[in-house]
Amino acid sequence: MAALGSPARTWRGLLRELRYLNAATGRPYRDTAAYRYLVKAFRAHRVTSEKLCRAQHELHFQAATYLCLLRSIRAHVALHQEFHGKGERSVEESAGLVGLKLPQQPGGKGWEP
């Protein structure tokens, strides 16, 4: 079975992602259907005294998968906007991407000593 860490950690991660999602609309994340559903699900599968509770592990796996989904989409969108969403780059920007810098011409472009 996959090692998932503690459920509380996953729960906190999910809340964090929900906050990011609702930052755009401006509504508090506690009003969303997703928050209500997650609270209900986490409550229904609260820690039992069993060493290994199958239903609880299943829920935790789903929660961790959902957390991974939200996190990766946020990271992917950020990278997409940073690098792929703006059309063609200028020569300076392209050079900067690979760690290079265009030479400075003291008298402007085409200047010869």
Partner: peptide, 17 residues
Amino acid sequence: EWAHDYERQELRARTAA
């Protein structure tokens, strides 16, 4: 970042979904 991280995050998102 714009190739490796981008692909990793996209693959993660798709696989998780």
